[in-house]
C-alpha cells in the first residue's frame, strides 16, 4: 500500500465517522423543533430561564453526573418508570434547550430527569444541597457546603438564609451558584406530552 493511498483511506474513514453519525444525526434529531401548546402558548419542552441555564453549568461542573443520569428509559412497566423517575421515557426533543446536553453514565443515585416534579419545594432542594441528611436521614448523596456562604448575621437573618444553626453569630446563605442549581433542578421535569412520547 502506498503512503498516499493509506493517508486517503484514513481520511475517508474519519470523514465517514463524522458525517455518518453527526451529519446524519443532525438531519434526524438536530432539526427537531419545540411543540407549541395551544392552550398556554408555551412550548414543549419549556424553555428554561436564564438562571436555570446557569444552573445547568453548575450541575455539570459539580460532577452530579458522576452519580445521576438524565435519561429515563421506557417502555411502560420498565424499572425506570416504575421507580417513579418520570411519567414517560426521555426522547431527543427533551434535550432541545439543554446547554450543555448531557445524559450521564452512572446511577449511584436516582435519575434526575423529573426531579423538579418529585421535589417541588425549592427550599427542600436547597437543603438537599447543603445537607441531604436533613431531608432524608438515610440519604447518601454528598453535601455541597461550598455552594453556600457564611455571613455574619445581623439583628435579623437574611430572607434566604438556611434554617440551620451556625457558630459565631453566622448565618448560612446560598450562593448565586446554589440558587442557579436549584432553579435548574426545578426545571427538570418530563411532565409534558410530546407527539413521539405521550403521557401514558
Amino acid at each position: 500500500m502506498k503512503p498516499t493511498r493509506a493517508l486517503a483511506i484514513v481520511l475517508v474513514a474519519l470523514l465517514f465517522t463524522w458525517i455518518g453519525q453527526v451529519a446524519v444525526g443532525y438531519l434526524q434529531v438536530g432539526k427537531l423543533e419545540p411543540v407549541l401548546n395551544e392552550e398556554t402558548s408555551l412550548t414543549n419542552p419549556p424553555a428554561p430561564s436564564g438562571l436555570a441555564q446557569t444552573g445547568a453549568r453548575v450541575f455539570a461542573s459539580e460532577g452530579c453526573l458522576e452519580c445521576h443520569s438524565l435519561s429515563v428509559r421506557g417502555p411502560a412497566g420498565s424499572a425506570d418508570l416504575t421507580r417513579g423517575w418520570g411519567p414517560r421515557r426521555s426522547v431527543p426533543r427533551d434535550y432541545l434547550f439543554r446547554e450543555p446536553a448531557l445524559i450521564g453514565f452512572a446511577r449511584i443515585g436516582p435519575d434526575l430527569s423529573d426531579v423538579g416534579e418529585r421535589i417541588k419545594e425549592p427550599n427542600d432542594l436547597m437543603m438537599h444541597l447543603l445537607n441531604p441528611k436533613k431531608l432524608r436521614s438515610t440519604s447518601t448523596c454528598p453535601p455541597h457546603p461550598w455552594l453556600f456562604e457564611l455571613k455574619l448575621a445581623g439583628p435579623k437573618n437574611e430572607n434566604d438564609s438556611m434554617p440551620v444553626t451556625a457558630a459565631d453569630w453566622k448565618q448560612v446563605v446560598p450562593s448565586y451558584k446554589a440558587k442557579a442549581l436549584v432553579a435548574y433542578l426545578q426545571s427538570l421535569n418530563l411532565g409534558y406530552p410530546l407527539p413521539e412520547a405521550p403521557l401514558k
Partner: peptide
C-alpha cells in the same frame, strides 16, 4: 477528532441531541 468535537460542542453549532452524539463519537 478533538478539533471537530470542540467546534461542535462548544462552538454553539450543535443542538442538544447532536451534542450527545458528538460526545459519544
Amino acid at each position: 477528532g478533538l478539533g471537530t468535537a470542540e467546534l461542535l460542542l462548544r462552538g454553539g453549532t450543535a443542538p442538544g441531541g447532536v451534542q450527545i452524539i458528538t460526545q459519544l463519537v
